[in-house]
Design a protein around this nucleic acid. Structure first.
Lengths: 239, 239
DNA sequence: GTAATAGTGTCTCTCAGACATTATGAG
DNA sequence: CTCATAATGTCTGAGAGACACTATTAC
């Protein structure tokens, strides 16, 4: 800011915080959407979001919106800033700058009534992309998907889609849903159980997947994966 | 945005665009800083930046600030959005939301006088971090460094620090400066020349590094690196 | 028993890391 | 010649992908 400035001399900009909330439901990646009740884009599907409050920090605003829309306990949801969108005209009413957050949540057993969640619902991402969303939310969603897909490669964040205790197969289905590719169960098992700090055994087991009982794990302390989860490039053995 | 809203009912927020401009100079990673001429933080070093203009897109604002501060032709500078910062109180005068951009530039032969560049200068990042910057710009800088270090791993962006034509050794020195670790010149050479779309031979060569003449390359069309540039983990052969 | 899934072992190819060796300039 | 750097080759070990094989449940 080299030159002196007068804040009042600059026109005001509305600042909103929107959310791309992803979960895996019935083996498919899904995103939380609301139906718009008023113009513009009345009746269209949109990402949840709202205005930044005067004395509210950005992550706090995102967490508040998330709680309003899902009622989820926010200690089990991963929340990170995605990107900021401010192209003039993206909202026809006024200049709006939107800070978009990405949330990864386990599949909620009950959508928690009595909140704004009534109007919000999870939609498979393929359907969401096929039906054009309001504003530039298609782009926000695509950017969120790209981020989520990338993060699954080099972080243990896939576990954020799973309940407190989960099996290796459940974790594998998360990867398959997010990446849209089948993974070899045996190589996957060897990989994740060998990765340091990814999974912590609970000692329990379950047969909820059928077949031989599977060990239950919870999230380990690792924040990154070394080496990363290999995302099948479709070109496994070039040459 | 579930409930109807009146934009005027929400207090205005000032929106600025700041820049983390990195370059490699004399083998050291350096960041562009300006000295603040007025309060608050008068006399302290800060990242360059300024207000978002009424009808200006975010990348356009970042490019404008970059041109004002460096005079660089913006077709040779990589520019990407880094993150957005909006904690209440980060600017004592008013509520400011700052969208920070990261720029990677080659070392400019002449700092181009006659612009705001007069007040801006490149400072080695170690020095910049040692001398506390104005506002929360230390955090912006650290986030920018982290992004740059990560991007060098899985993209060919290191070439953005190099002039139009460059040698493999010059590219290696970029990695060494950004990561702060020495790399084996022979393995590095084999790696980058073997990576598809990273480098395009120009047919020219130079002896500006001394010793045997080195081939000159320009940036190739690749946007990502598969497999990524291995950043020495300091724990090369665990076990 | 069969069916289904969990989990282990084995082989091959690629690639990272270490380092020898040769090539080509300047002085 | 020496010195410096470029460029290539060779060996070893880690890990990915493919897939055989064994283990433990439900029926």
């Amino acid at each position: 800011m080299p030159q002196p400035y007068d804040p009042a001399a600059f026109p005001s900009v509305a600042v909103t915080v929107d959310l791309v909330v992803l979960t895996v439901r019935a083996g498919r990646l899904a995103v939380l959407l609301v139906e718009r009740g008023e113009a513009p884009h009345r009746g269209r599907l949109a990402l949840p979001g709202g205005f930044l409050r005067p004395d509210e920090d950005l992550p706090a605003a995102a967490a508040r919106e998330l709680a309003e829309e899902t009622g989820l306990p926010h200690d089990c949801v991963h929340l990170e800033q995605l990107a900021t969108y401010g192209t003039p005209g993206r909202d026809p009413r006024m200049r709006v700058v939107t800070i978009c957050y990405l949330a990864l949540a386990p599949d909620l057993p009950s959508p928690v009534a009595g909140t704004d969640a009534a109007s919000a619902s999870f939609v498979p991402v393929d359907d969401a992309l096929a039906a054009a969303l309001a504003f530039d939310h298609d782009r926000l969603l695509r950017d969120g998907l790209e981020r989520a897909r990338a993060k699954l490669e080099y972080t243990p964040l896939a576990a954020a889609f799973c309940p407190e205790e989960f099996t290796v197969a459940e974790l594998r289905r998360v990867y398959e849903a997010v990446w849209g590719t089948p993974l070899d169960p045996r190589n996957f098992h060897r990989k994740v159980t060998g990765a340091d700090g990814f999974l912590e055994p609970t000692g329990h087991s379950t047969t909820r997947d059928g077949g031989r009982p599977a060990q239950l794990y919870r999230r380990g302390p690792a924040r990154t994966l070394h080496p990363s989860m290999p995302r099948s490039t479709g070109d496994p053995h070039p040459g």
